[in-house]
Amino acid sequence: MALNNRLKEYRARIGVNQQELGSMVHVSRQTISLIERGDYSPSVTLALKLAKVFDAKVEDLFTYVDDGKGESENE
């Protein structure tokens, strides 16, 4: 997996569930679930929206690790 994230940890800090976080950034619960599981890499816009909700930097939430697999992780 090329993109690691700490979304679940940050979500627990502010005490919201996936559905509530989804509503806060205007995406579905499934999308939050996909991001947390590392099955979907969010767009820059969504990553920035998430960072804003947690009052954090995008780099605090997401870290990129070059595993040489390219950009197919969204499939």
Binding site: H26, S28, Q30
Partner: peptide, 28 residues
Amino acid sequence: LNPEKKGSVYDFRFAKKWYESLDEAERL
């Protein structure tokens, strides 16, 4: 389940409205 979803099956433009209410991951 997903309050952001829009569209009624009785609407002839249901498929379009439903698609427009999908987020980026769902569209992918």
